[in-house]
Design a protein around this nucleic acid. Structure first.
Length: 145
RNA sequence: UCAGCAGGUCACCUUAUCGCCGCGCCAAUGGUGCGGAGGAAAGUCCGGACACCAUAGUGCAGUAUAGCGGGUAACGCCCGUCCACCUAAGGGUGAGGACCAGUGCAACAGAAAGAAUGUACAGAUAAUGCUGUAGUGAAACCAGGUAAACUCUAUGCGGUGCAACGUCAUGUAAAUCAGUGUUUGAGGGUGCACGCCCGAGCUGAAGGGUAGGCGGUUAGAGCUUUUGGGUAACCAAGAGCCUAGAUAAAUGAUAGGGGCAUUCUAACGUAUUAGGAAGAAAUUCUGAAACAAGUUUAGAAUGAACAGAAUCCGGCUUAUGACCUGCUUUUUUU
RNA sequence: GGCCCCGUAGUUCAAUGGAUAGAAUAGAAGUUUCCUAAACUUUAGAUGCAAGUUCGAUUCUUGCCGGGGUCA
């Protein structure tokens, strides 16, 4: 069990460490799945982030596998591409409970950065939350149909 | 001070919280400890190591290099040196072998650009030949110029690249059609010929399946330092150290603290100067105001480049911030 | 990650180291026509960038920049 340090404002939400982790087996790695995503997947977009998702069976026993991608055409520098991917990963990691608690079934996610300029973390986080809200709404509509 | 030239160093540090990857331990899916990008990790331009194909063979073809000497595992790299060129100087640049083997090329201009010798003037002479000057041009210095023209000479180079290669797993279709071949040898060993070797498949068409794991994979021509040798590149010996291993691809996010640089503001503080006084004079004393440089303190604002390992090393090239040292004196200011 | 190939007008292609880089098409202006098309006349427009060799580079050499292909 983690010691809870009440003086730091951020730590009060970190009750379960599991909740905010993003280990290897939750990463989307299979080439097959990714190709399938692009062919059959549905998408939700909220500038500057686009999410492609697909309800499917996964090779490992986790609920969601997620990957991040940045176009090489938009960002030529490898440093910038890495930076954006890291920001996306942080954005996903810290907002994971939003999805985990409000969705049914197994999913594969792929986050694309479709902006043209280097983002700040705040922008990414905002975009992430908006995308998740849209996603939850959309999936709920599909289930009711 | 500015400008230029050469060489070198470093690539902000740290705390908290959350998170990622590797290894070790506890011990069992968690906890804990340690470690986690670069000088260029980049371009892939050279050279190797390593792996497979003959223990990598011979000749031709092809290709690279080019003063001389040295260093190196090797090099197209580095060091020394001669020569040529550039620069005011410090210094920099150089594919710098051979047109007494052969072939080709030279626009325009010019009499003439190759086995060519014209014209004018002068000299000399019995006379011609001859000698010098003139104009064109990049070249007309005559057994001419040109080899980053073919070529010749010398030397090096077998090919393919870690998606090499080995191995385990999964899966279908060892199927179908056409051509060719099995000792009269297909096809292969990356161009051709020879030689050596493998030996039943190979090629094309349409179509089907898998595109996962492990090894290779990080201790090395390694790094730091001392002594000795060498003008230097570098070499030898001793001591110490272990220093990233991801694979849709880790090394991050957030919030503070400190240091550094630049600019501005305020304060501190003086060389110097107008002026004044003393003195025969040199000079001494006093000194308003203002500018620039320097130093210290306080506050505020701004900023910190280029860029991300992918089998591993040695170079080269390109991108890029700051600081330090030495040299030069054509110029700028005092 | 490795290994290859290609850069000429807006587009498709030419040009042996030698005068002002050529052609087709597209563009612009004009003539003709009541208007348009066609035709005719005129016109503007390019060697990816930077060095080197050369008297002289689109062409030869080197380094960058950009684009494309291939591999189990």
């Amino acid at each position: 069990m983690l010691p809870i340090i009440s003086t730091k404002p951020r730590t009060k939400v970190c009750i379960w460490k599991m909740l905010y982790s993003f280990p290897k087996k939750e990463k989307l790695k299979s080439k097959k799945l990714i190709e399938q995503l692009f062919e059959e997947g549905k998408s939700v977009s909220n500038y500057p982030i686009k999410l492609i998702y697909l309800n499917t069976t996964l090779p490992t026993d986790v609920k969601i596998q997620a990957g991040m991608a940045v176009s090489k055409k938009r960002f030529k520098s490898a440093v910038k591409r890495n930076r954006i991917k890291r920001l996306l990963r942080e954005g996903y990691r810290l907002n994971k409970p939003l999805v985990f608690n409000n969705i049914e079934g197994n999913f594969a996610f792929l986050f694309l950065y479709i902006g043209k300029e280097m983002p700040q973390y705040k922008d990414v986080e905002k975009g992430m939350q908006a995308v998740f809200k849209k996603l939850i709404k959309q999936t709920a509509d599909e289930n009711t149909d």
